[in-house]
Design a protein around this nucleic acid. Sequence first.
DNA 1: TGCAGAATTGGACACGTGTCCACCACAGGT
DNA 2: ACCTGTGGTGGACACGTGTCCAATTCTGCA
Lengths: 165, 165
Amino acid sequence: MDELREAGYQGLSVRAVAARSGVAPATAYNYFSSKEHLVAEVFWRRISQQDDRSVDRRRSPATRAVDVLADFALVVANETELAAACTVALLADDPEVHELRVEIGRLLHTRLLSALDGDAPHAAIRALELVVSGALIEVGTGHLAYGDLRDLLAESAGLIVGGAA
Amino acid sequence: MDELREAGYQGLSVRAVAARSGVAPATAYNYFSSKEHLVAEVFWRRISQQDDRSVDRRRSPATRAVDVLADFALVVANETELAAACTVALLADDPEVHELRVEIGRLLHTRLLSALDGDAPHAAIRALELVVSGALIEVGTGHLAYGDLRDLLAESAGLIVGGAA
DNA sequence: TGCAGAATTGGACACGTGTCCACCACAGGT
DNA sequence: ACCTGTGGTGGACACGTGTCCAATTCTGCA
């Protein structure tokens, strides 16, 4: 993370991260096959370490959905550089990254399902998934400000899941 | 395009494209600052060369929206390799690419606006924009098949824009 | 204490990238 | 026929990447 902040994603290199960790480059490559894999792993750990929200059925379905989406996106979106890094990294054509991508997708799906089960059709959940990737990309490319993310997610979720936003 | 099909995005290089075009590498770099820029340019040209649909207000707003989104996405989505290339390329941290990204965003926005103006709130248009980027990424990463794209877009648009899907 | 197996290391490797610059080819105007 | 300027060219450059491997150091266990 420190390295990413200082050098940006372009400037990030596995070697530099290794150096900062007091470890030889070859060692780093034993664990991470590329910088994409490294960054994707950071994202995955942050996401999966969040503790699950308990579902409170007194709140509207849309609100519950937004909570899930915001938890998901805000983990990285508070730093544009990190959001950019994660979005690009997760698209890499690398088996290790593919694995993580699937895992992350599964996790998001599970969370949405448990927050909304019964209160929204399957199609709505799919749409929410698309929306959150779209939103993350907009943050990563700098077209959407961190501060506006939650509102945008809320607006979209309001439209997708019937209930009042 | 031929080069991309044969070598994949990973294997694509500006030099190889230059060679295939019977042109020196240095010449290619005069026009495209990176392979990301090259690919982004291909995407941009394909998108912007589509002719605008005429708005038929007898059809439901959602249907009109789907037409715009599908035109947009299907330009590249019929070949996974191309979709992957475009999505990754468009995220590059390169001023030329940034320019194109803005241009493409503007074009999509304009088309949605003209297809839906008055029949959907601004928030719906934003949500549709997010959905289409999300969908493109899923195709690019191979998590969504080309054949399923249109249906998925239709489902989502149906939820976002009130009218019957 | 000593040892076997695992983890880490340095260093070289082949390859690809984007940049630079001096030089050349050639079309259009005179 | 001759300039002139624009665009194209070859070739070298510094840099970063991921891979490999033989040598070294660590670690847990007997």
